[in-house]
């Protein structure tokens, strides 16, 4: 635990003392801020909906959520693998898990800093006399942080799988986007391919067609259970703190961190 904190502190220190991180943050903040005022303007001053857009309903939100974490995590393991720092860390008296966990916490904390800007918007709005629904706002922020954590974990996994940071960022990005688009893709596939297959193989109404349709249904349900967007929008976005949703995000994050640790360990015999 202490090792984790030490690693986290060092990573945070490096992030906080790197102009790159701050520039990235300020660009993201600028974009988010401009968009937020645009929402307010377009929605004729509706604070609730503007905040909902800023935290989960808009494309820009998801774009930031998908793009930012890989940029922060891409170098975390890949670069250290290249410079030999992994050897240093893995021969230090801390566990491998502490290394990954520390990096994860650092990146997530930094991203949390970014998402905390939205409640800050709420504070500004409250100062202007339009107090937001604080509960919903905090719920949304928490959700954004948890989702960032999830994407940080995939970013770390990608970073641990290669020693080229850019490749790591690309891998993580591709993975995240695929995941987000998975329900849509499945729907399209099921809508087109499965019905077509069913027709081809069973002449329409046969048994094969029915079972294939059932399989499609089952697949859709399965994909539905890992639909990040749906999980986010039905809980955090509307200010509902649901343990199931928290467990969803935390468990997937945990899985990717676990895999990243295992991958880091294989560095030893690769």
């Amino acid at each position: 635990m202490r090792g984790t904190l030490v690693i986290m502190r060092r990573e945070l220190f490096s992030l906080a003392t790197s102009p790159f991180a701050w520039i990235l943050l300020s660009v993201a903040l600028f974009l988010n801020g401009v968009l937020f005022t645009a929402y307010i303007q377009l929605l004729d001053g509706d604070v609730t909906w503007a905040l909902r857009f800023a935290l989960g309903e808009s494309l820009a939100f998801w774009a930031l959520l998908v793009f930012l974490p890989p940029l922060f995590t891409m170098r975390m393991v890949a670069e250290e693998a290249r410079s030999g720092l992994v050897e240093y860390l893995l021969t230090s008296p801390i566990s491998d898990a502490a290394v990954i966990l520390g990096k994860f916490l650092a990146a997530t904390t930094f991203l949390a800093l970014f998402w905390c800007s939205v409640p800050l918007y709420g504070l500004v709005l409250a100062g202007l006399g339009a107090s937001p629904d604080w509960g919903a706002l905090l719920g949304g922020t928490l959700g954004a942080i948890l989702t960032s954590g999830l994407f940080v974990s995939t970013g770390l996994l990608a970073s641990a799988s290669t020693s080229t940071p850019v490749l790591a960022a690309f891998l993580a990005l591709a993975f995240n986007l695929t995941w987000l688009a998975l329900p849509l893709v499945t729907e399209l596939l099921l809508g087109g391919a499965v019905s077509w297959l069913a027709r081809v193989f069973s002449g329409g109404e046969g048994l094969g067609g029915a079972s294939l349709a059932a399989a499609g249904d089952w697949l859709q349900r399965l994909v539905g259970t890992i639909d990040i967007l749906a999980h986010f929008q039905k809980s955090f976005l509307v200010g509902l703190l649901d343990t199931t949703e928290v467990v969803f995000f935390l468990s997937w994050t945990g899985l990717f961190l676990f895999l990243a640790v295992r991958l880091l360990e294989t560095r030893r015999w690769r």
Binding site: W22, I23, L25, S26, V27, L29, F30, G33, V34, F36, T37, I40, S117, L120, Y121, V124, L125, L128
Partner: peptide
């Protein structure tokens, strides 16, 4: 006023 704080002040501080 909102725009000034949210779109300019915050990122500006970061920069």
């Amino acid at each position: 006023r909102l725009k000034r704080t949210v779109a300019w002040l915050l990122p500006g501080l970061c920069l």
